[in-house]
Design a protein around this nucleic acid. Structure first.
Length: 281
DNA sequence: AGTACGCCCTGGCCGC
DNA sequence: TGCGGCCAGGGCGTAC
């Protein structure tokens, strides 16, 4: 499932491949991936003939800056954006739902097995209103104080980290890994964290997301980068999908529980559910 | 307001 | 070999 590190990896690769290039056309086989538009023709009219000025990312969304419009691509669970210069057997490939054609025969294939991904065009000035995302966790303005203010409600910390309206870009994999790094139990109410825990959480968010980017993302399910390569971060996972296996720190068996319909993995010893007061080391 | 749950969707896996 | 049942979960809508 592409989260911030996976989308950022794709963005960095695509900059060198399609930035500055003009979109010549879009072929759409599965119209349901085009959202927020009355017709496929509408998106076509707004992107064809336009040059990709810049590639950006906001949370888990990839942003192609065109002339005043932005083409937004969200990969959902199993979406992939694959760069190709070969003429693709588009109609025969059951998972390639759309192809964006650029000059010089360059193409971006939009593949998605589960069809949760989507693309749409939005006016630049309406982007934030449309996305409704919390702050980017890897920018300078995301300070310890910003995080502290987000933790004022009793929401379970795991749920809060995955709430895109609170913080942008963190999903199930990275929230598990962040909470392990910070040694915080996923069920802890956000407003029960001690000063020290908030600090650890703040540092863990940056450290784990950067680590994810460093290893080019997680390919646990189906993630591939723009050139079809896997990420290597799952080799470094310490809790995600490791239930039943020994903790890499203390050898305690990693546990899996369900929180809000999603699986959460944690080490019961490293991430104890004790209340705010920290044990003195 | 917080939270649980169902839905969209399909492949993979398990048990029979 | 096949088939039903369940699981994976991002985002969204709904209900409590």
């Amino acid at each position: 499932m592409p989260e911030l590190p996976e989308v950022e990896t794709i963005r960095r690769d695509l900059i060198n491949l399609v930035a500055g290039k003009t979109i010549l056309g879009i072929r759409i086989k599965l119209p349901r991936i085009i959202r927020k538009h009355k017709s496929a023709g509408e998106i076509r009219k707004r992107i064809v003939g336009k040059k990709v000025k810049e590639l950006d990312r906001r949370g888990k969304s990839l942003l192609f800056h065109l002339d005043g419009d932005i083409l937004v691509i969200h990969l959902g669970m199993t979406g992939q954006i694959l760069f190709s210069t070969q003429k693709h057997p588009f109609q025969k490939d059951k998972y390639t739902h759309a192809v964006i054609d650029f000059e010089e025969g360059k193409q971006l294939l939009f593949k998605d097995v589960r069809q949760f991904g989507q693309m749409y065009v939005v006016r630049k000035e309406n982007l934030e209103k449309t996305l409704e995302l919390g702050p980017e966790p890897l920018v300078k303005s995301f300070t310890l104080d910003v995080l502290r203010k987000l933790l004022s409600a009793p929401t379970k910390i795991k749920v809060l980290l995955m709430d895109q309206k609170k913080i942008a870009g963190i999903g199930n994999i990275y929230s598990d890994e962040i909470l392990f790094e910070a040694r915080i139990h996923p069920l802890r109410p956000a407003n029960s964290l001690s000063q020290d825990e908030v600090k650890r959480l703040y540092q863990a968010i940056a450290a784990i997301l950067k680590k994810g980017i460093k290893y080019r993302g997680t390919s646990a399910d189906s993630y591939l980068d723009a050139l079809g390569r896997k990420g290597r971060y799952e080799e470094h996972h310490r809790v995600y999908r490791r239930s039943g296996e020994p903790c890499r720190v203390c050898r305690t068996t990693i546990k899996r529980i369900t929180i809000g319909g999603r699986s959460a993995h944690f080490c019961p010893k490293c991430q104890k559910y004790h209340n705010s007061r920290e044990l003195r080391a």
